[in-house]
Nucleic acid binder design. Structure first.
Lengths: 175, 175
DNA sequence: CCCAATTAAATTGCGCGCAATTAAATAATC
DNA sequence: GATTATTTAATTGCGCGCAATTTAATTGGG
């Protein structure tokens, strides 16, 4: 009993329960968790912008530097796993950071596939200027570290669920 | 002791309190609320993708259609206020939806500056196919509507703070 | 009525994100 | 040791997001 393969089913026995009342009902944007997360993420990035502009960094470049300030030296693969970004995003980004003199890029001699990324002296110097950004952000929104941490822990749990989703539901199509 | 004028200060009397312990300390990516929100947002979008692919919509096109399914007819300005997006994003997006036959675009005769956006029959028909997406998402992550709502309300409060940044401080926790 | 100010969309340019593909190096298998 | 499979980056292409600018229409004040 395979449904139209072009229309993925969510394969839920409970989906039935929703069907009746869902008919002709409107899904409100503001009641969607996804939209709220999406909107919050963009608003936070806008909040960062004036602070990061002083460092001549974008937000993505900034979080990349956060990892580099911590590790001093790493690989693109490790960076990607940490930032949840792939080479399609990181390759041009790291090249940009290299032209700005903040990092160096070179192949690992042990394994020529691997790209080593090392923060430069100028890159380390930038850490000093970035030091107060987290507390500045907190202050800009008027929140407490505790409230931010509480929200972050909840989102962090959600992120784990999103990322470690069981392969059982892996294929959306196979009912 | 005036700091570098090129480095915006967060202008806080309390910032002092952080200064001592922040010295030479590493800011961990995973402890940053901003990064968690950013990562969750992207993971959710990836979760949507297989479902939206069946409708031939991107996530941004989908939330635009959500508003249009609700209002049937609106303006770009109103859409932008609802979605928190500007014409730079919406103009090409709506043109795309128009070429797909889901909406029509025309100037308001009362005010030629305004662009009216109306959902077509084909656009309305698509709502049927999209009806189960929210419940599918919930099921994919194995969460309850209550847990999702709880998280959404907290983020929603955060979003209000981010957008209306008033000196009036609302605590994220007393929603 | 005229002119400046405001408003709404469109345009331009840049930097992501990410799917999909390619290329090269290494590992695994026989 | 040759062949195949896997791993790692780089590349390509597309669709956002958004700052900044431009264009056109409307409004408001004199």
């Amino acid at each position: 009993m395979q449904p139209d393969p072009h229309t993925p089913s969510c394969n839920s026995r409970d989906a039935h329960a929703y069907h009746e009342e869902a008919h002709a009902e409107t899904v409100l944007l503001e009641q969607q968790l996804c939209f709220t997360v999406y909107a919050v993420s963009r608003e936070i990035t806008k909040l960062y912008q004036p602070l990061l502009k002083a460092l001549n960094l974008t937000y993505t470049q900034y979080i990349t530097m956060l990892v580099l300030w911590e590790l001093r030296e790493t690989t693109m693969k490790a960076l990607g796993e940490r930032l949840l970004l792939d080479s399609g995003t990181l390759t041009p980004l790291l090249k940009k950071l290299e032209t700005q003199g903040l990092v160096t890029r070179r192949r690992d001699r042990r394994d020529e596939r691997s790209l080593q990324v090392v923060v430069t002296e100028a890159g380390l110097a930038l850490q000093e200027k970035a030091r107060h950004i987290p507390e500045c952000l907190l202050q800009m929104v008027g929140g407490t570290p505790e409230a931010a941490d509480d929200l972050r822990l909840r989102l962090s749990a959600a992120l784990d669920i999103l990322r470690n989703r069981e392969p059982i539901i892996n294929n959306v199509n196979d009912v």
